[in-house]
Amino acid sequence: MDAEHTAATDGSSKPATGYRLLLPSQWAQVPLRQGTEEAVGSILKDLFSRIPEHLPPDKIGPYKKVISARFRSSVTQAQQKNGLDLYVPVKPVGDQEFNLGASILVAETTLPEREPGATFADPTDLVVQLLSRERVNADLSSGEVDGAVAVRREFVAEADPTHGVDVASRRIEYIASVPGDPARWFVAAFSTVGGGNPRDELAEVLVEWFDAVMATFRWRFE
């Protein structure tokens, strides 16, 4: 799947206007600014069409309600995080069933203004400092995303039942400066619960997979 998103552009500075990201066909895109309900409805319809017909209605009904509520809640949370797109695995791979145990959220953010007298060698230094203050146990590294300065952050988010998070999850975030618009930053955040342990073998494989996916990332200029 060639996923694309187009953002607003300033003709004078000609910043990047969007992005392209290659994902397997098992993953579906949910745009979070426009066309959200249509995408959610299509995904749920496709999912429910694969429910075995021999199952009794009193089992199917509650299952649909739980999955629909869980999925819609995830979409709403993504929108509240200034998300652009949410990607979720919606088709089975081998004997696996549909679940929301992994996701990719693409969002954008702006950096706070520098304090008077503050100096940084490049924008990446500011991001590293901000992220270091926010989460002590995160692994941070700097690099590039399609030629743009970027920071990669990896950490385990503990379960937080008070906010509806029942299990811990492994998080990988790529935070990249948008070309042509240094105040804007692109964020691609991957989350997985692995096989039940955010540091188990499945989680490790999925982290490597997401890093490979980000290698396909390209800015769009129009």
Rank of each mutant, 00 (worst) to 15 (best):
D2G: 13
D2I: 12
A3F: 12
E4G: 01
A7W: 01
A8H: 03
T9R: 02
G11V: 14
S12F: 14
K14L: 14
A16Q: 08
L23C: 07
P24C: 02
P24H: 01
W27G: 07
Q29P: 00
P31V: 00
L32G: 03
Q34N: 07
G35W: 04
E38S: 08
G41Q: 06
G41L: 04
G41R: 01
S42C: 10
I43V: 14
D46Y: 10
L47S: 08
F48S: 02
F48A: 07
R50L: 14
E53D: 12
E53P: 12
P57E: 10
P57K: 13
K65Q: 07
V66D: 09
A69W: 04
A69K: 05
R70H: 01
F71Q: 00
R72I: 03
V75G: 03
T76Y: 02
T76M: 12
Q77H: 12
K81S: 11
K81R: 05
N82G: 07
N82R: 09
N82E: 01
G94E: 03
Q96M: 11
Q96P: 02
G101F: 04
A102Q: 11
V106H: 02
A107M: 02
T109V: 05
T109L: 06
P112I: 10
R114D: 15
A118L: 08
T119M: 15
A121V: 14
D122H: 13
P123W: 13
P123S: 14
D125E: 12
D125S: 13
D125K: 12
L126N: 11
V127P: 00
V127E: 01
V128D: 07
L130Y: 10
L131C: 12
E134T: 09
A138E: 08
D139E: 14
G143R: 10
E144Q: 15
V145P: 01
D146H: 07
A148D: 13
A148P: 13
A148K: 06
A150E: 05
R153E: 13
V156H: 08
V156Q: 06
V156D: 10
A157E: 15
E158G: 15
G164W: 06
G164T: 06
G164L: 09
D166S: 08
A168F: 05
A168I: 10
R171G: 01
I172D: 03
I175S: 11
P179D: 06
G180H: 01
A183M: 02
R184G: 00
F186Y: 03
V187P: 02
V187I: 13
A189T: 08
F190C: 00
V193R: 10
V193W: 01
N197Q: 11
P198A: 00
D200P: 06
A203H: 00
A203N: 05
V205F: 07
V205Q: 15
E208W: 05
F210M: 03
F210A: 10
D211W: 04
A212R: 15
A212K: 11
M214D: 00
R218V: 05
W219Y: 14
W219S: 04
R220L: 10
E222I: 13
